[in-house]
Amino acid sequence: MLVVFDVDGTLVDSQHAIVAAMTEAYVGAGLAAPSREAILGIVGLSVPEAVAVLSASGVDHPVAAIGDAYKAAFNRARTAAPRADPLYPGAREAIAALAARGDVLLGLATGNSRRGVERFIDTFGFHGVFATTQSADDAPSKPHPGMLLLACAEAGVTPEETVMIGDTTFDMQMARAAGARAIGVAWGYHPPERLAAAGAQTVLSRFDELIPALSPPQTEATA
């Protein structure tokens, strides 16, 4: 089984850094910053797609420049204080428990850049833990299935043997488009009811619910 995690909003509580960086990018362009709710609503998309959604009502918005400014602001914040955005409670323990199993491979699929993925692994000491890591530099933005299909190919498993763990509808839709199972988490940036509507098999309220949830869904026996 391949278990693939999203990063922001699933493993790492990065909401403050994301909101601050996006606000700085818009203000720097001389524009009103989107609301906190709107910014957190696009977490999971790759940066160009996220800014395009936030700027949908502003046809004259310099989307590319805002995206570049956001990435620069976010990278400055992460470089200055790499541990300012903590792992969610239970995340490290869940990863360690799964990594110790011989029947499980672990992966990442995130809208972050490759540099962001490497920083995440360096910051939290996850070297050698993930069999595959996919970023915004490797495939189209979620909910396109490309990241997950690349992860399956690199890990040598089928989508049917793969589970995507994420906090946004984009994660759930990506999993379903790839033919993988989808499990949502309630502590991230999209509410549980949206995750369920987007195809989540279940939505976890705590990380210690993850391992039991990975068991294949039981089907009712027929007479």
Rank of each mutant, 00 (worst) to 15 (best):
Y189W: 12
A200M: 08
F126N: 09
A100M: 10
A100C: 07
S57F: 12
A175P: 05
C152D: 01
Q173I: 04
T10G: 03
E154K: 12
D85Q: 14
A73W: 02
A178V: 01
M172R: 01
M174N: 07
T133K: 11
G107V: 02
Y88P: 07
P86Y: 10
L45K: 05
S57Q: 15
P145G: 13
G128P: 14
L214G: 08
F74R: 05
R36D: 15
A80P: 07
T133H: 07
A65T: 11
E118K: 08
V43E: 05
P62F: 04
F120S: 08
D103Y: 10
A155R: 00
P34K: 05
Y189S: 07
H190G: 08
G179H: 00
E220C: 13
T219Y: 13
L204M: 02
A139I: 03
E118F: 03
M147D: 04
A175N: 04
I121A: 05
M1R: 15
D8I: 00
K71P: 04
A182Q: 06
G58Y: 12
D85T: 04
A80T: 11
T219K: 14
E209D: 12
A196Q: 03
A151K: 06
Y70D: 06
I121P: 08
A20W: 00
R194K: 15
A97R: 14
A182F: 01
R115K: 13
L105S: 10
E49N: 13
P217Q: 11
V203L: 00
A100E: 15
V4S: 11
D137P: 04
K142F: 09
V59S: 15
T132M: 12
R114I: 08
T169N: 00
P143W: 09
M1G: 12
A155C: 08
I211Q: 13
R36L: 09
V27Q: 14
W187N: 00
E161I: 00
L106C: 07
L31V: 04
S35W: 06
L149D: 02
L45R: 03
T79R: 13
R115I: 10
E209H: 11
Q173G: 08
